[in-house]
Each structure stands twice: as C-alpha cells, then as structure tokens.
Design a binder for these strands. Structure first.
Lengths: 118, 118
DNA sequence: TTGACACATACCATTATGGGCATACGATCG
DNA sequence: CGATCGTATGCCCATAATGGTATGTGTCAA
C-alpha cells in the first residue's frame, strides 16, 4: 500500500506545508483563488489542487462569486489534531523526560485537566 | 515531485495512524519493540520502519538493553504541531463559523450573491 | 458572438510510502 | 562454539502525491 491519501483526514491534509500556508492566508478571511495564488506565489493549478484537498477534508468551503470562487476557512477539522496533540502537551512542557509511567495520567487528562502552558 | 518525506517533520510523521498509535503506546513509558508489535498487532518489520521514521523526526529515542531496544517517547516535536493548530483554536471553539467576524470588511465588499457549494 | 478572465481538471513524470517477505546483524543462551 | 531471540534492513509492488503544462468550463465584457 502507498501512503494514505491526503484527503483521508486533517492530519494528512495539513502535513503539506503549502496547504498550511493556504489555511493561514484564509485565516484572514474569505479569499478568491487569485489572492491565494498571489500570496503563495504558486502556480494557479497547484493552488486549486491544494484547495481541493482542503475542501475534501472540510477545512475550507467555497462560494461562487461571479467568475471567482471565494474560499473560506473552516477550522473545525483541526480540532481533532488539537485534541490529539493536547494529550502530549505536558510531556514536552514539563520535565518528564526521564520518567516512564507518567502517562498513566494521560487518560485521566480526559476528565481532570490541570492546564499547563509552556 | 512526490509528497514530502514522512521524515520531514512531525506533521508528516504523525499523519500516519500507526505511528500515532505507537506514540500512544510509548506514552505509557519506555517499551521494547516486541511490546509495540504486540500492542499494535503489526508485523515487526513494519513497526521497526515506523519507529525509524519517528526516530528521524525526534519523536522517539532508543536505548540498547541487551538484545532489546527500548523506545521512549519524546513529545517535544509535537509542540510545533500544537503551536500551529493552536492559532486556529478560536475559529472552531467560538461561533465564527457562519460569521465573518474579523473579516467583516470582506463581506462588505460584496453583497448580493448566492452561496453555492460543490 | 468572440474574447478575456478565473478556476478546475487532465495527463505526465518523478518519487517514495506502507506492507510483505527474506535476511542480515548483534546479544544472549546453552 | 553454534543456536536462537530481538531488531533492523533490503528488495519488490502497488499506489498516489506534487509539480508542470495544457486544456476544459463557466462568467463577464465588448
């Protein structure tokens, strides 16, 4: 088997730097393809392809506006990623490097959260 | 060009479900390969390959222990992912979905139009 | 209508992934 | 020492992704 399709989930879709860049551009608001092309300095077909992937995983939505297509960010799919990494947050923010059984509490994190920031 | 190497960064390494599973197993503490193999029910060579990828992006560390190799999680590379997604957190946790919020001005640029999806 | 414009899609080439299987390699056991 | 366990690596295959270039489709202008 080959690598999972980029359209499998947000994890795969976002693994591509260009797609992350597109999301960042869209974070400022709805934009037509041409704007993204200009912002990223990529070929238009490439941008369209990346947008297609992002659309398939639900990270962006399109809206027709004359001959332009306005793309809008929908960050919700990113929540799954956030939820996943979040479980490891304490492992890098605290000095648990040498500890082994630390993660016994990982599951407990689900209900009891003590919130750590770096 | 093909897709970026899985060893490019944590984003790519973690896009693979099996590798995420491995990290989850290691979250409970240091473990020899055989344990991971047993936990995931995958072929040993596959696990070794995945571990290699994880090692190359710094998500795991190895330690020789007799004829076993003990793998240990190092979550630090995950921080970059966390930092990235974090910027979008408000976009999914708040009700900015249907609203244009910050980008209200863009919305003002165009008025009458009908939304169309794929 | 023709043409310019904004995007999307098709096709090509290059690359390498994930999985399967066999095997090489180091450490330990007998 | 040789045998075996624990892992890593090599090789093969099928899949597909990214980037490039060309072209198709729909919209608006003249």
């Amino acid at each position: 088997m080959a690598r999972a399709a980029t359209t499998t989930d947000a994890f795969n879709a976002v693994a591509e730097p260009r797609r992350r860049q597109i999301l960042e551009v869209l974070a400022d608001g709805e934009r037509p393809v041409s704007d993204i092309v200009a912002s990223l300095g990529l070929a238009q077909p490439l941008v369209s392809k990346h947008l297609r992937v992002l659309r398939e995983v639900g990270l962006v939505e399109v809206r027709d506006h004359g001959r332009q297509r306005m793309y809008r960010l929908d960050a919700r799919p990113l929540k799954s990623i956030h939820d996943w990494v979040r479980n490891y947050e304490r492992l890098w923010s605290e000095r648990f490097d040498r500890l082994d059984g630390v993660l016994g509490e990982l599951k407990a994190l689900e209900d009891g959260d003590d919130g750590n920031d770096e």
